[in-house]
Design a protein around this nucleic acid. Structure first.
Lengths: 350, 350
DNA sequence: CCGTGCTGGTAATTCGTATAACCAAGCCCC
DNA sequence: GGGGCTTGGTTATACGAATTACCAGCACGG
């Protein structure tokens, strides 16, 4: 009644003994080694013994001999915790698994000591490479120890330029978001940003640059009063949307540089009795899945392609992670929902 | 200028050679082995060589000899992806790290083949134990292979009763949520559930049982029309809140069995022009951090103690995970915000 | 001058797997 | 009838660290 191979102590020698062959034979048969020939009878006996004993290869012995483990390290600051960035780890893990690799994941919570210790441990385990991920897009300093193996910076850029980086294409995203509003017929389009344009926040700077490009391309003037600095949270959206809509020459559309900001704007507009998209059109950024689809009306927004970015990070690692310091940018696709419509025909659209 | 120990190939033998001692000496000195005596001079030379060469112990060689690895497997269905359950993995990882262990995490996405393969790989790596986690509280079937090592079921219960389980105390949560409303003076309290009470959803059944207990304890009658079955999403909250408030004898308070349901109720109440908490009080469940604090007004809700549950899972593993099939329940603390107030003095409160 | 005990180390073995090198038996063919 | 090829395996070793058993040298006591 007890399953035969429940003890984890079964080794290749046990299998060999049970099958009446040598340990080498077991190894060669199991690995289907090229250039070796064994009788069908022997193969059958080996496999039968493996099954009978519940043999499982000892990965450590294998790694010790082969030098490289079937694991990839994943170090993130808050990746597993962040509401939407879990996707990034999911994508990485899925791709790693396709290559037969497991992810050794650590959330440092920003703790540099933990980060250093984790990396040491990962190196001890001879991980095939390390993905160094950040919760939000920024320019960061990569620990020196990563120079010892293939490493990729994910959702950020490496300041030192030593490592390949993978980041979202912020400028194009800002452009597409704004263009969506321009194409809908809007002529007075505000932007509520998630931070200062000159700070170390590529998302704020890039999305704003795209916003400006779309406006200029459409021949619209870029009233600086229409660009407001929020904080990336609901309150930033709430306060700024309120200010924009109650001020002189209110916009007919607002590009919110993230979904939480957009949510704050929804709340402000509701308070003002303005309807979306009838009175004001809105575009967000992030496509936060716990938020954007559930707002009423659903928020049209740009998706951060975290799943793909995570996948790609592993691919770059597997390809050797050329130490050229280049950054690979991922396009953020527009996710159409119901927060954009044509502007009301008012004096401003005349 | 180049860092000395950048090559990862440095072994204990290299260190021994550089220090002019034997490999055994290096090992004994580095591990500070009890009962051995080495001169200060020798110790110094060893440490100097280690530093000079950038030696790092090969974890696989160590595990191969010692038998158990410094890793714990974490298998979840959607844990990393789920909006709030990332906490569960964060807690587990933090506790594991305190014990010097790393988490080998896999998200199966519900794929049983991937799950089986991951577990095999983890066993190959001689993980010290496995946490088998579920995104939402349910009764589940644990893969047989887990019987081979210490294993804990997290955020669910093991149907077979073979493994220790860790789950939230749903009934008490439902009781506390409802009691909060009773204590505020409400006498007609509805509940919008997240599923059927008789399904395999301990959360739905437990929270409802607690709801009933609180009502009975307060001597209130339990009008079955006040208990409505939602789907756990916004729409379930929206539709049912609408129905409740526009029906006969509307409640003055609603216990929503999760925060998303509560959010849907917010939207329905807003549409009806009812204010929270003035016209209707609301209590949620989950304390979803991307949602509950950001609603206007902030949602009073019960916290799922995922961080602590994750920590506890590792502790149970470290203690050997006694195969007694017991379930350890975690209390869900009430998080007070601003969605509960005393009912308006109407005829029903008279 | 020999036995005993202490100091400060070293040699050898073990863990489980992969693989290079080797080998015995059988058969063919000149 | 012996050289050479094929078939079907085996033996031996390396990977890197931990640990047990052992050992050389010296001091001391009787």
């Amino acid at each position: 009644m007890t399953r035969p191979g429940s003890r984890s102590g079964t080794t290749m020698n046990d299998v060999a003994a049970a099958a009446g062959v040598s340990q080498a034979t077991v190894s060669l048969v199991l690995n289907d080694a090229a250039g070796t020939r064994f009788s069908e009878e022997t193969r059958r006996k080996v496999h039968a013994a493996v099954h009978e004993l519940g043999y499982r290869t000892n990965a450590h012995a294998k790694v010790l001999r082969d030098g490289v483990a079937g694991m990839i390290g994943f170090v993130g600051d808050f990746v597993a915790t962040a509401p939407f960035a879990g996707k990034i780890i999911e994508g990485a893990q899925a791709r790693a698994w396709e290559a037969g690799l497991l992810l050794l994941a650590v959330n440092t919570g920003g703790d540099k000591a933990l980060e250093a210790a984790s990396l040491e441990t990962m190196l001890s385990y001879k991980v095939a490479g390390v993905v160094y991920a950040a919760m939000y897009h920024r320019v960061l300093d990569v620990p020196d120890v990563l120079a010892e193996l293939p490493a990729v910076v994910l959702n950020s850029r490496d300041r030192s330029g030593r490592f390949p980086s993978i980041a979202p294409q912020e400028e194009l995203g800002g452009y597409m978001a704004t263009k969506r509003l321009v194409d809908a017929g809007h002529r007075r389009i505000a932007m509520i940003n998630i931070g200062a344009v000159d700070g170390e926040l590529p998302a704020a700077a890039g999305r704003h640059a795209g916003y400006l490009r779309a406006l200029r391309e459409a021949g619209l003037d870029t009233d600086p009063r229409l660009h407001r600095i929020g904080d990336g949270h609901e309150s930033g959206g709430f306060d700024n949307a309120l200010a924009l809509m109650t001020g002189p020459q209110p916009p007919t559309a607002i590009f919110c540089a993230n979904d939480r900001t957009a949510w704050g704007s929804y709340q402000a507009l509701a308070q003002l009795g303005l309807s979306i998209p009838h009175d004001v059109s809105l575009v967000g950024f992030d496509n936060q899945e716990t938020l954007a689809p559930h707002l009423r009306p659903g928020l049209t927004t740009l998706e951060l392609p975290f799943l793909e970015m995570g996948r790609r990070a592993i691919e770059v690692l597997l390809a050797g992670a050329e130490r050229d310091g280049s950054t690979e940018y991922f396009e953020c696709p527009l996710v159409e929902r119901h927060s954009v419509a044509a502007p009301l025909k008012t004096a401003t659209s005349f």
